[in-house]
């Protein structure tokens, strides 16, 4: 068994173990970071496969993503950060069954599948090749997806922010009438800040 095999086995074990722990912990913060550990182990496996850029990119993508996810879950979910213990899973029996079936199905593909034998050419530079692929023929797709996402994010922040350029965003606002031009369903001082209490469902 070579050094690379050993690293692969260790990382594979870490990825599976921490992936399993995600569903056992009672805290959203811990769950996020167990998932991060799992992804980092997968990233190392990608490095072993010679996908230098993708492996490293997975590290920073997942680090930012899990950090933001943990933060937002704590902000928006009831029972933030598992301060009070709670059951974190729904339909766990079905999900576990589906997971096991999927695992074995994918493993079966990996083990019994007939893969073409195409060794990597020795002069191939994976980073350059990937760059040519991303910024060559597929550039339009990637760039339009990227710009759309960015515009969405900026738009969401601008629309949801209370602080507007000309004062509070909801100052003087009025809920729509029940019929065109009619009275709103309810009115009062608390409109600006009401509505938030409907967020409690899980």
């Amino acid at each position: 068994m070579s050094f690379v095999d050993l690293i692969f086995l260790i990382c594979g074990a870490i990825a599976i173990f921490s992936g399993w722990r995600v569903f056992c912990t009672d805290s959203m913060v811990r769950a996020s970071f167990f998932l991060l550990i799992s992804f980092i182990a997968v990233g190392v496996i990608m490095l072993l496969l010679g996908a230098v850029y993708l492996g490293v990119a997975l590290f920073f993508m997942m680090a930012v993503e899990m950090m933001v996810m943990a933060l937002f879950m704590v902000m928006f979910m009831m029972n933030p950060a598992g301060l009070n213990p709670m059951k974190m899973v729904h339909q766990d029996k079905f999900a576990a069954l589906a997971g096991v079936v999927a695992f074995f199905a994918l493993s079966a593909v990996a083990v019994f599948g007939d893969f073409p034998d195409q060794p990597r050419p020795s002069d191939l530079d994976p980073v350059v090749t990937l760059g040519k692929e991303l910024l060559g023929d597929s550039m339009l797709v990637f760039e339009s997806a990227g710009v759309t996402l960015l515009a969405t994010m900026i738009g969401v922040v601008a629309m949801s922010s209370h602080r507007g350029r000309y004062g509070d965003a909801n100052a003087g606002s009025r809920p729509p009438g029940l019929e065109p031009g009619g009275m709103p369903a309810f009115s009062g001082d608390q409109e600006g800040s009401s509505g938030g209490h409907h967020h409690h469902h899980h």
């Binding site: 301060l83 922010s161 209370h162 600006g192 800040s193 938030g196 409690h200």
Partner: peptide, 12 residues
């Protein structure tokens, strides 16, 4: 259990 309350600053 912690429950959200009205915010003073940005409505979040």
């Amino acid at each position: 259990m912690a429950m959200p309350t009205d915010d003073l600053r940005d409505g979040l």
